[in-house]
C-alpha cells in the first residue's frame, strides 16, 4: 500500500532524508527505530505533507497514487494518518467539534453521507472509552492544557475515529505509563484487526522502545540512521537493539 523510493527531503536547506526506501503492504506492522535526529519524524512529516519540508528527489506511491502530488488534506482523506510526536495545542477550537469536522470532511471526500451530531457523539464516546481518555477532554480546545499522555491518547482517539488505511505513530509510546500503553496498544490492535475494514490496515510504529513492540508485534523492524534505512529485519532486531544499543547494528564507521 505504501512504496517509498529513494526519498530525499530537506528542511531550511538541510538535507535530512537521503535516499530512503520502504515498502509496506496491507496488514503489515513495521517498526522504525533509530537514534535521535536520524530523521524519523521528518519521514512522518514529509508523508503527511508538512509545508516546512521540501522533497528534493524520490517518489511515494500510496494505494497506487502519487502521494506527493496530494494536498495535506487529500492525503488524510486518502487514508493516511500520522499520530504526531508533539501534537499541537490549538486554543479556541473545540476538540470534539474538530473531530466531527475532520470525520465529515473525509466522509464527504469519499462520497459517504455525513454523520449527524448524535451518531457522531455516540461513535466518539465509544472510542474515548477504548483509549481510556477523560470524556471531559473532548469539550476542551484541541490539546490545550493536556498532559503529555493525554495528547498521545487524543492522537490515537483521532486515529480510531478517522479509521485510516495506514497509520504512522511517531513515538506515541513515550509519555505513556505502562497501563496507558497497554490500553493504547489494545486500541491499536483492534484498529488493525478490525473485521469491518475493507482492506487490512497498515501500521508504521516509530519508537525507541521494545516495550511497545511487546504489545504490538511488528512484522518488520528497520533502523533509520542519517536519513536512510541502514538495516531491516524481524522482531529480533528490536530485541538486539534493546540489549546492545545501536553501536553493533550500524554499518561500520557510522556509529
Amino acid at each position: 500500500m505504501l512504496n517509498i523510493n529513494n526519498l530525499h527531503a530537506e528542511i531550511q536547506g538541510n538535507t535530512i532524508l537521503k535516499g530512503l526506501n520502504l515498502s509496506v503492504k496491507a496488514g503489515e506492522v513495521h517498526a522504525i527505530m533509530g537514534p535521535n535526529g536520524s530523521g524519523k519524524s521528518t519521514l512522518a512529516n514529509v508523508l503527511a505533507g508538512h509545508p516546512d519540508y521540501q522533497v528534493t528527489a524520490g517518489e511515494v506511491i500510496f494505494q497506487g497514487a502519487d502521494l506527493l502530488g496530494f494536498s495535506v488534506a487529500q492525503r488524510a482523506c486518502a487514508g493516511l494518518f500520522v499520530a504526531f510526536q508533539y501534537p499541537l495545542e490549538i486554543p479556541g477550537v473545540s476538540n470534539v467539534q474538530f473531530l466531527k469536522l475532520a470525520l465529515n470532511s473525509q466522509r464527504k471526500y469519499r462520497q459517504l453521507s455525513e454523520l449527524d451530531a448524535l451518531d457522531f457523539l455516540q461513535l466518539v464516546k465509544s472510542k474515548v472509552q477504548e483509549v481510556g481518555m477523560e470524556e471531559e477532554l473532548l469539550y476542551r480546545s484541541i490539546n490545550e492544557g493536556f498532559s503529555g499522555g493525554e495528547k498521545k491518547r487524543n492522537e490515537i482517539l483521532q486515529m480510531l475515529v478517522l479509521e485510516p488505511q495506514l497509520a504512522i505513530l511517531d513515538e506515541t509510546d513515550s509519555g505513556l505509563d505502562i497501563d496507558a500503553l497497554k490500553l493504547v496498544a489494545q486500541g491499536v490492535n483492534a484498529f488493525r484487526c478490525d473485521p469491518n475494514a475493507g482492506q487490512e490496515r497498515g501500521l508504521i510504529l516509530i519508537t525507541h522502545y521494545q516495550r511497545l513492540l511487546n504489545f504490538i508485534n511488528p512484522d518488520f523492524v528497520h533502523i533509520l540512521f542519517d536519513g536512510r534505512i541502514v538495516k531491516s529485519g524481524g522482531p529480533e532486531l528490536a530485541l538486539a537493539l534493546e540489549k546492545n544499543g545501536y553501536a553493533d547494528l550500524l554499518p561500520k564507521g557510522l556509529s
Binding site: 503527511a48 508538512h50 509545508p51 474538530f98 469536522l101 475532520a102 470525520l103 470532511s105
Partner: peptide, 15 residues
C-alpha cells in the same frame, strides 16, 4: 499559525 493550519489539514480538513 501555519503549524496549526497543517495540523487541522492533516486530519482531512480543507484549507
Amino acid at each position: 499559525d501555519t503549524q496549526a493550519l497543517f495540523y487541522l489539514q492533516s486530519r482531512g480538513v480543507s484549507q
